[in-house]
Amino acid sequence: MTFDVLYFAWLRERIGEPSERIESSARTVGQLVAELAAKDDWHAAAFADMSAVRCAVDQELADMDTSIEGAREIAFFPPMTGG
Protein backbone atom coordinates (compact mmCIF):
# COMPACT_ATOMS: atom_id res chain seq x y z
CA MET A 1 0.00 0.00 0.00
CA THR A 2 1.06 3.59 -0.54
CA PHE A 3 0.94 6.08 2.31
CA ASP A 4 1.60 9.79 2.57
CA VAL A 5 3.77 10.12 5.67
CA LEU A 6 3.89 13.59 7.25
CA TYR A 7 6.33 14.99 9.81
CA PHE A 8 5.96 18.01 12.05
CA ALA A 9 8.17 20.12 14.34
CA TRP A 10 11.52 18.52 15.23
CA LEU A 11 10.64 15.25 13.50
CA ARG A 12 10.35 17.21 10.26
CA GLU A 13 13.72 18.84 10.95
CA ARG A 14 15.48 15.57 11.76
CA ILE A 15 14.16 13.85 8.67
CA GLY A 16 14.70 16.91 6.50
CA GLU A 17 11.37 16.68 4.67
CA PRO A 18 7.80 17.61 5.64
CA SER A 19 6.38 14.55 3.88
CA GLU A 20 7.19 11.53 1.78
CA ARG A 21 5.29 8.88 -0.12
CA ILE A 22 6.01 5.40 1.23
CA GLU A 23 5.27 2.04 -0.32
CA SER A 24 4.86 -0.41 2.54
CA SER A 25 3.26 -3.67 3.56
CA ALA A 26 3.08 -2.50 7.21
CA ARG A 27 -0.29 -3.13 8.83
CA THR A 28 0.11 -1.07 11.98
CA VAL A 29 1.70 2.24 12.92
CA GLY A 30 4.38 0.37 14.86
CA GLN A 31 5.32 -1.77 11.85
CA LEU A 32 5.56 1.35 9.69
CA VAL A 33 7.78 3.06 12.28
CA ALA A 34 10.13 0.04 12.27
CA GLU A 35 10.40 0.25 8.47
CA LEU A 36 10.92 4.02 8.45
CA ALA A 37 13.53 3.94 11.23
CA ALA A 38 15.58 1.45 9.18
CA LYS A 39 15.69 3.73 6.11
CA ASP A 40 18.66 5.91 7.03
CA ASP A 41 20.38 7.77 9.90
CA TRP A 42 17.98 10.70 9.74
CA HIS A 43 14.92 8.51 10.11
CA ALA A 44 16.65 6.49 12.81
CA ALA A 45 17.34 9.70 14.76
CA ALA A 46 13.75 10.90 14.39
CA PHE A 47 12.32 7.64 15.73
CA ALA A 48 15.04 6.91 18.30
CA ASP A 49 12.88 7.85 21.30
CA MET A 50 9.32 6.72 20.68
CA SER A 51 8.16 8.07 24.05
CA ALA A 52 8.54 11.51 22.44
CA VAL A 53 6.66 10.66 19.24
CA ARG A 54 2.90 10.94 18.70
CA CYS A 55 0.96 9.81 15.67
CA ALA A 56 -2.23 10.40 13.71
CA VAL A 57 -3.80 8.10 11.12
CA ASP A 58 -5.94 10.00 8.61
CA GLN A 59 -5.97 12.99 10.99
CA GLU A 60 -7.15 10.96 14.01
CA LEU A 61 -4.83 10.51 16.99
CA ALA A 62 -3.52 6.96 17.03
CA ASP A 63 -1.02 4.73 18.81
CA MET A 64 1.52 2.13 17.77
CA ASP A 65 -1.10 -0.65 17.59
CA THR A 66 -3.48 1.30 15.37
CA SER A 67 -4.17 -0.36 12.03
CA ILE A 68 -3.12 1.56 8.92
CA GLU A 69 -4.85 -0.76 6.46
CA GLY A 70 -6.73 1.39 4.00
CA ALA A 71 -5.32 4.59 5.52
CA ARG A 72 -3.92 7.33 3.31
CA GLU A 73 -2.11 9.75 5.58
CA ILE A 74 0.09 8.88 8.57
CA ALA A 75 1.53 11.80 10.54
CA PHE A 76 4.30 11.75 13.15
CA PHE A 77 5.02 14.61 15.55
CA PRO A 78 6.19 15.43 19.08
CA PRO A 79 3.70 15.84 21.96
CA MET A 80 1.53 18.85 21.18
CA THR A 81 2.16 22.24 22.76
CA GLY A 82 -0.81 24.36 21.78
CA GLY A 83 -2.85 26.82 23.77
Partner: peptide, 10 residues
Protein backbone atom coordinates in the same frame (compact mmCIF):
# COMPACT_ATOMS: atom_id res chain seq x y z
CA UNK B 1 -6.10 22.22 23.35
CA UNK B 2 -2.75 22.33 25.15
CA UNK B 3 -2.08 18.61 24.90
CA UNK B 4 -4.20 17.24 22.06
CA UNK B 5 -4.62 19.88 19.36
CA UNK B 6 -1.89 19.59 16.70
CA UNK B 7 0.14 22.74 17.42
CA UNK B 8 3.86 22.92 18.19
CA UNK B 9 5.55 25.99 19.63
CA UNK B 10 9.11 27.02 18.91
Amino acid sequence: LKSRAPFWKR
